[in-house]
């Protein structure tokens, strides 16, 4: 691609792994950013021809309209089952899922645990925005204690509605989990770190050592009823104490005598 244009330098452009379709996401939503970094990594690694993505029902149900790679849209909660089907018949390909918290930690909890427990060699990208975005901001398993949603209008009452579920810590205990990390998209440095984690995960996938799992703590301005700026501030102050960013499980470096 041309690097200079009438003496002007191109410092950023859309990757070919994204289509030209305008995204339907709300202004300031984290989904668009996560889409972009995954697609950047795929383009930069040159693995478009070898990658299949699976996005289930949720705000990102139309991911296949934006991600210019082969994609499957899965039923609500079943992305990792579908991804297992893809990966088992195409074991040399890169496979990733892109799931919301309702999908991965409520209706699809069984699939989540068993996919990781089998150590499926896939990458699971888990966008945790603390609500059911697509259906209009209902309570999710990750909704914070006391947090108001349309189905916890007086705030999540942990005595009757359960506590926020840290599913990432939970699956990190499973032997099939190879690399487990929690990242976010609220700032430019955070986005850069997320991108590194995604690249690392695709590199790991080649090793066939188990599941890579990236939780992305993301804002949902519409669901949280805030402006994008407010939502990012709220994320740092309220989501991070419950969902602190950082690596949770990293592969052991190979032994010196190996």
């Amino acid at each position: 691609m041309e690097n200079s244009l009438n003496g002007l330098e191109v410092v950023y452009e859309k990757v070919e792994t994204l289509t030209d379709a305008p995204m339907h996401y709300c202004p300031g939503c984290g989904h668009g950013v996560v889409h972009r970094v995954i697609m950047e990594v795929i383009q930069e690694m040159g693995i478009t021809e070898d990658t299949i993505g699976v996005a289930p029902v949720g705000c990102s149900v139309f991911a296949y309209n934006y991600m210019n790679i082969d994609m499957q849209e899965a039923a609500h909660g079943r992305a990792t089952a579908a991804a297992t089907g893809v990966k088992r018949v195409l074991p040399e390909k890169y496979v990733f899922t892109y799931q919301g918290d309702g999908d991965l930690a409520a209706i699809g909890t069984g699939e989540t645990i068993h996919t990781v427990n089998r150590g499926e060699n896939i990458l699971m990208v888990f966008v945790n925005n603390g609500v059911y975005g697509m259906t209009g901001g209902q309570m999710a398993p990750t909704t914070l204690a006391g947090m108001k949603t349309t189905t916890s209008p007086f705030g999540r009452d942990t005595a009757t509605m359960g506590s926020p579920l840290r599913i990432t810590e939970l699956i990190a205990h499973l032997p099939g989990a190879y690399y487990v990390t929690r990242q976010s998209v609220h700032s430019a440095p955070a986005v850069r770190k997320l991108k590194k984690a995604i690249q690392q995960s695709f590199e790991y996938q080649k090793l066939k050592q188990g599941t890579c799992f990236i939780e992305v703590v993301a804002n949902c301005p519409s669901g949280w009823k805030m402006t994008p700026v407010e939502s990012n501030k709220w994320l740092v102050e309220n989501m991070f104490p419950m969902y602190p960013p950082g690596d949770i499980k990293v592969p052991k470096p190979p032994a010196a005598n190996n």
Binding site: A75, A82, G85, V89
Partner: peptide, 18 residues
């Protein structure tokens, strides 16, 4: 699979992959 629900969705994935 861990359930028939998972199994049929594995079918979806594998059949979709040809």
């Amino acid at each position: 699979a861990e359930s028939e629900v998972a199994a049929i969705n594995m079918v979806y994935g594998a059949a979709g992959a040809g």
